[in-house]
Design a binder for these strands. Structure first.
Lengths: 152, 152
DNA sequence: TGAAATAGGACTAAACTAGTCCTCTAAATT
DNA sequence: AATTTAGAGGACTAGTTTAGTCCTATTTCA
């Protein structure tokens, strides 16, 4: 239903914690305790996030994870992509398969534009926005402007 | 993966056909033939679209379906909602359940803003945009601006 | 060397999706 | 009135995906 997976939701929670306690190395167990997300799940998520470079892992005793960039340099799009793969609303926006019908492809060409806009929108919101900007005095601002995209 | 369902994709194809042949009543069989989507699937989709008022149904012999408004008055958001239900990236943006942790809820409060922005974005693109605006001379324009939303 | 961590991947149950099919109801035609 | 055409509504199924767990290997510290 145009829904993010639960795991991505968890990932933002867990990265939010890391953002609020930056410059420290956090073991998976610690993050699990702090966020009350089950340890195996936290582990899995951190591994995914590490693989795509959102967090850095330090192996061995006293190891753990830390954010690989400051929270305002990590976008929501980065997080989603780390957990769910490429952001694309429609199938053929990723895999450029043969479209049986030109009429359909017209439609899908335009879907591609919408996809692009979505991605841009999600790229414009940072982990810092998610993790910190919750004071009533500082509402999250959000602006996207995607114009005159030619389809390709 | 933040993906629309195949069915929604089909729905846009089939509504695109209807948009391009407006002012006519189309039986499900006809639409199925024209779009090369299997009849039972087309039926199912049209029923869903009828239920939420995107198309109007005419029962009985010589019956069929037609768009209930002009293509530029039907938004992509309408179509998605008809097929997939409410547009909300995160779970608790719909069902306002109890959040175990205030830290988590901060994050989720901000998700709500992003959801809103997404919805606004999808509301700003019409079926007409999808179905017609594919000429290289007329690229699909797309502009969203969501600012200073205070969280609810 | 032993303990503490992550890496990587296998595995499972539950949920969802896509797609089909069946019966019922409504309207038009004859 | 009977017949035919077409939608309404919902049940059902196979296949896929998601969420979550667990196991084994590897790395690092002490």
């Amino acid at each position: 239903m145009l829904r993010l997976s639960k795991l991505t939701d968890y990932a933002t929670v867990l990265l939010g914690y890391m953002a609020r306690h930056r410059a420290e190395i956090h073991a998976a167990v610690e993050i699990a305790r702090a966020t009350r997300i089950a340890l195996p799940t936290v582990s899995k998520l951190l591994k995914l996030l590490a693989r795509s470079g959102v967090v850095r892992s330090i192996r061995g005793a006293k190891g753990g994870y830390c954010l690989s960039s400051p929270p305002d340099k990590i976008s929501v799009a980065d997080i989603i992509q780390a957990i769910e793969g490429p952001i694309a609303l429609t199938e053929c926006s990723i895999s450029d398969e043969y479209c049986e019908q030109s009429a359909n492809c017209e439609i899908r060409g335009n879907w591609r534009v919408i996809n692009k806009a979505m991605r841009t929108a999600l790229e414009s919101v940072s982990l810092a926005d998610l993790a910190f900007a919750t004071k009533p005095s500082a509402p999250l601002e959000f602006k996207v402007s995607v114009e005159s995209l030619s389809r390709g």
